[in-house]
């Protein structure tokens, strides 16, 4: 077998194993709930029968490992169970399916993250590479100082500064990202301009600094100096000699920051009241709606793991040393 394929298969197996273990961790979170939480959800007036029926529905009368396989089995079929909210003491069940709650919001979040990534990734790469090329110039220093200050600020600080400047003092963009399923694309982009700008500022700073460091590291290596001394043009050195080795660190940087986006999205969605999955999770945490929290955590964790896995695989595939084994 080609060594690359073997390495990739190893990574895939490792990623799946991690995902499996993470799902166990997320599942067993329920085990730590205080014993009387069924009554807390159903209300004090709940009859014994209602509580018993609810416990039976949750499967609390079965051992944990059976419940885990039930849960993970239905999750794999796209069924995350039913939400805790909407239950009542009389046994009337107005609760909704978790999937119903999550699906439209997940689309919104993916839209926001995608829009941010489309703007942020090329911008960060451009800034990072140019800052590395013109190292220690005025341009480099300005870009560095700007990104250093955005890194140190909490996301909500950046968000509120943007609201203050671009929404109240100069009313250009709306401060509330009010979008629905049937909002046309142009309006959608306009409404999510500020949340996406906030996320862009935060992740461009990280990405740009890491890209710059990766390229500077590389440009200092002897084989680049050799290529320069041979008299190759600057562009040829960068494109043919530096870039093939730079792909791995750059892809890692991008994936790391897209994974960071997954987390940053939570705070930003709350600031702009953007109807996404992050806000749903925060609401569910406040009302202690465990099935929704579990589903959101699983989605976030899976995205995070998959992005990191993808980065691993891309950096293996683009590694010249592995591509041409001796």
């Amino acid at each position: 077998m080609h060594p690359i394929i073997r390495t990739i298969l190893q990574r895939l197996g490792l990623g799946l194993l991690t995902l499996f273990l993470v799902s166990i961790v997320i599942f067993s979170a329920v085990e730590f709930l205080p014993g009387d939480f069924t009554e807390a959800i159903l209300g004090q007036a709940a009859t014994k029968e209602t509580v018993a029926a609810f416990r039976h529905e949750l499967g609390l009368d079965q051992p944990a490992h059976i419940r885990y396989f039930d849960w993970i089995g239905s999750v794999l079929q796209g069924d995350f169970g039913t939400s805790f909210s909407g239950r009542s003491a009389s046994g009337v069940d107005r609760s909704r399916e978790v999937v119903e709650l999550i699906a439209p919001r997940l689309m919104n979040t993916l839209f926001l993250a995608g829009m941010t990534a489309i703007i942020a990734v090329p911008l960060a790469l451009f800034l990072g590479v140019t800052a590395a090329l013109y190292r220690n110039s005025l341009y480099d220093r300005i870009v560095n100082a700007g990104t250093l200050s955005t890194i140190s600020m909490p996301e909500f600080f950046v968000a509120y500064i943007l609201i203050l400047l671009l929404s109240t003092i100069f009313p250009v963009f709306p401060s509330l990202a009010n979008i629905a399923a049937d909002t046309p694309l142009i309006e959608r982009v306009y409404a999510s301009a500020l949340p996406s700008l906030t996320l862009t500022l935060v992740i461009v700073a990280h990405m740009m600094r890491m890209t710059r460091a990766a390229i500077i590291n590389l440009l200092a290596s002897p084989y680049i100096e050799m290529a320069r001394l041979k008299g190759l043009s600057g562009r040829r050195v960068i494109l043919h000699h530096a870039l093939p080795n730079a792909w791995a660190p750059i892809v890692n940087v991008i994936a790391f920051n897209l994974a960071y986006l997954v987390v940053g999205v939570v705070v930003v969605e709350v600031v702009f009241v953007y109807p996404g999955i992050g806000q749903l999770m925060v609401d569910a945490v406040t009302s202690r709606d465990i099935p929704v929290v579990q589903a959101c955590a699983l989605i976030f964790a899976a995205t995070y793991i998959l992005l990191n896995l993808l980065a691993d695989i891309i950096s293996i595939v683009t590694n010249p040393r592995l591509l041409h084994p001796r």
Binding site: I26, V263, A301
Partner: peptide
């Protein structure tokens, strides 16, 4: 492997 803010949110929903 779990983003720490997400993990913290989940644990806070359980322990209050």
């Amino acid at each position: 492997a779990i983003p720490s803010l997400i993990f913290a949110l989940m644990l806070l929903s359980i322990f209050g």
